Simulated scan of single mutants.
Amino acid sequence: MSKPLGFEKPLGMRDILPDVLEKQRWLEHQVKACMKQWGYREIGTPTLEYYDTVGGASATLDHKLFKLLDSEGKTVVLRPDMTAPIARVASSLLKEDPLPLRLMYTANVFRAQKNEAGRNAEFPQLGIECVGSSSVDADAEAIALAVSVLKEAGVPVFKIAVGHIGFLEGLLEEIIEEKEDREKLKEFLYHRDYVGFRHYAKGLALPEGNEARLYELLRLRGGKELLERAEAITVNGQARKAVNNLRELWEALEAYQVEEYVLLDLNLLRSLDYYTGILFEGYAANQGFSICAGGRYDSLMAQFGRPCPATGFAVQMDSLLEAVNYQPVQANKFLILYHANQRTEALARARALRTEEKAVVITQRKEEWAQTDFSQYTEVIDLTGEEAI
């Protein structure tokens, strides 16, 4: 194995240059301020977590976890998300706090990538978790807050796609007897392989009516009007209950006045076995990847000894950076040039300007400055009295 070159970085890692980081920090400020206005409190958790606790509870697939051994021989992971760590904290340090808990975070998360994937293995997320409420109002709050966050960040055009895992699983159970076949169809939906879904469904040799119900599932995208169509292809039980849940959700979203940003998508599937109810993804115009995603995960907290419902979402900062056209405000920036015997005077001038919240760079005037682009400075103060720059 060859030694890496001095400028190389591990697979999936990247440097963030000043202009991009300035935009990222501005977006973080906008998003966090919005979340705080909704009553969420910021929390931080370690970068390293135990594999047997947080690693095993995460929705991230095992082969995408960064695993290490600590000094005691225990397997730890670089946190793949923030939901499982927050569930751990809510079940331990915050176990005496009354529910619901409203927590928010900003953190880098880590997921291993393959050589051909071309994706970042470390990336920043901002998000919220509402722990302890099973009401449809909590689901509506999460979606409405996601809308508010994207608007506050300056995303010009976006939609939030909303689905329900209970509808999907309930409908498949009504139509298909074998669990293996149901799981295979869910995999096609997870990968958005609708051609594969149709082909596999055709091979099941289902009664014509049931086959038509599966194909109708793929067409269930739109506004609240599709809920009647969804109800028409269900018999009863879990799928019908999910439709009623979505109807109540839509009423709540109308009360929030965000329904224009919401699209129902009843074949949406984000994880094969993690979400337990309403789930959603946000997409900006002309982007192939989701800009935010979340949903209800009522089974997670029990893994940490505090069974209770929960919902939340995360904003993908990398996608948000691409979606927002941010023009930084050019702050006043001064350059003070001096000779060695003028250092005290130069420092005094710099202090005075900085008390006025000006940015100041000071340096001795040297020959190499003749080749410098001074357009970045609001004013150049040359104490040397030499030829103007």
Rank of each mutant, 00 (worst) to 15 (best):
F123T: 05
E152G: 02
E116Y: 10
G163T: 08
F66C: 12
A57P: 01
F123H: 02
Y105F: 03
I128C: 04
I165Y: 02
A138T: 11
A57M: 01
K67H: 00
P100C: 15
L65N: 04
L68N: 11
G163P: 08
K74M: 13
P85F: 00
E129G: 01
S135D: 09
F110I: 08
E122A: 11
V131F: 11
L69R: 13
Q125S: 09
G56E: 15
L94M: 13
G55Y: 02
R88E: 07
A146S: 08
I160Y: 10
Q113Y: 03
V155R: 11
A90L: 04
T75P: 12
E49M: 01
L93S: 14
L65R: 08
G127P: 04
E141Y: 08
N115C: 11
V77M: 02
L126H: 02
N108A: 11
L99I: 11
E173F: 05
V157A: 12
L99Q: 09
L94P: 00
D62P: 02
V162C: 13
D52V: 01
D70M: 01
G170I: 14
L61Q: 15
H164I: 04
E72P: 02
L94G: 12
I43T: 01
T47E: 10
A84W: 07
V136H: 10
G55Q: 01
E169A: 13
R79Y: 09
S92I: 11
A107R: 05
Y51Q: 09
A142H: 14
M82Y: 04
G73P: 06
H164R: 09
R102C: 08
P85G: 08
R119E: 09
F110G: 13
I165A: 13
G132P: 00
L94Q: 07
K159G: 04
A161Q: 14
G166A: 14
V147C: 15
E72Y: 15
C130A: 11
R111M: 12
K64Y: 09
F66N: 07
G127R: 03
L103T: 00
A146R: 09
S135T: 15
K64R: 15
L150R: 05
V89C: 10
A112D: 13
E152Q: 14
L61K: 14
E152I: 06
A117V: 07
A121F: 07
K114I: 06
G73V: 13
A161G: 04
R79Q: 05
V136L: 14
L78R: 00
V109D: 06
A117G: 10
F158V: 13
R102N: 05
V149K: 11
S135W: 05
G127V: 00
S134G: 15
L48V: 09
E174R: 12
E49R: 00
S148C: 12
M104I: 02
A117I: 04
L101I: 06
M104A: 12
R102F: 11
K151H: 12
A153G: 04
L126C: 08
R102L: 09
G127N: 07
V54L: 02
D137E: 15
T47P: 07
G127M: 01
T83C: 06
V54E: 07
